[in-house]
Simulated scan of single mutants.
Amino acid sequence: MTGTKTAPFAGRLIQTAFTTADIRETMREMTARLGIGPWFLRERGVFRNQVYRGQPATTALAIAMGYAGDMQFEIIQQLDDSPSVYREAAERSGHGLHHFGVAWTDYDAALAHYRSLGFTLAYSAEVANGARVAYFDTHGTLPAMVEAIELLPATEAMFGRFQAAARGWDGSDPVRPLA
């Protein structure tokens, strides 16, 4: 890649995320073929303060997270018909790679950074442990959206527990429910 400059960057790539029509089948396949696991599954959740393309949203999701090495993998299944970043991507190109999750300790700096690159804020919400996330539409530039994840101490601890469970995992108890 000639002529490509690295942008000033304070985030850390920690996640690769996918959408699916069947979260349990996708977990099984990714475990069997890629060794990802165990999975931590929230069967149904509606995040607080969702905003999709400038409008309030109430999208219901099933979400699973698991690790292979240092990379976190996330699988998302939308459970309703509401407009969302998940539905728009699936309608555009089918289920599969959806976003890259980048952890930031300074959420406002993350928003400013991606906006300075010309990316449009497509979705934001408050997720587990009160952390905020923001998805930026990178269509035409990157092969998936970018999610800025606010890395609060509680969020980092949760991810650390998930990753620790993956180290030396023997394949037992492959799906672990989350409240």
Rank of each mutant, 00 (worst) to 15 (best):
R24E: 07
Q55R: 12
I76T: 09
A109D: 14
A109W: 11
G130M: 03
F47K: 08
V46S: 13
R12Q: 09
P83E: 12
M30N: 09
T138C: 15
D137E: 05
A89K: 14
G45E: 15
R48T: 14
Y135A: 01
P143K: 02
V133W: 08
E91G: 02
L61C: 03
W104Q: 12
R132G: 08
G37C: 08
F40H: 07
T120S: 09
A90N: 04
A112R: 10
T31H: 08
W104S: 07
W104K: 08
Y107W: 09
L79M: 08
A89V: 14
P56D: 01
A60G: 06
L34A: 12
G66M: 04
I76A: 11
A125P: 06
R44W: 06
D22S: 01
N129P: 06
E147H: 01
S124V: 13
G96C: 08
R42Y: 03
G130K: 11
S124W: 11
A112L: 09
I63E: 13
H99M: 01
Y135V: 07
L41F: 12
L34K: 10
V127E: 08
I75F: 03
P38V: 10
A89C: 11
L41A: 15
R24Q: 03
T19P: 01
T59H: 02
T20W: 02
A89Y: 12
G118T: 04
A90M: 12
D80Y: 01
E147K: 06
L111F: 07
V46D: 10
A128F: 00
R42H: 09
Y86C: 04
T141D: 15
Y52L: 12
Q55D: 08
F40A: 01
R53I: 06
A131Q: 00
A103Q: 14
D81W: 02
T138E: 15
Y67P: 10
T120K: 10
P143T: 06
W39K: 11
Y123N: 14
S116A: 01
F100G: 13
L97W: 00
L117E: 10
T105I: 06
Y52V: 14
A89E: 14
V146G: 00
I76V: 06
G94R: 01
A62R: 00
A62E: 00
T141A: 13
M71T: 13
H113W: 01
G69P: 09
F119H: 03
R44A: 11
A131N: 08
M65L: 09
A62M: 00
F47M: 14
D80I: 07
Q50L: 02
A90L: 09
V133C: 10
D81Y: 00
R12A: 07
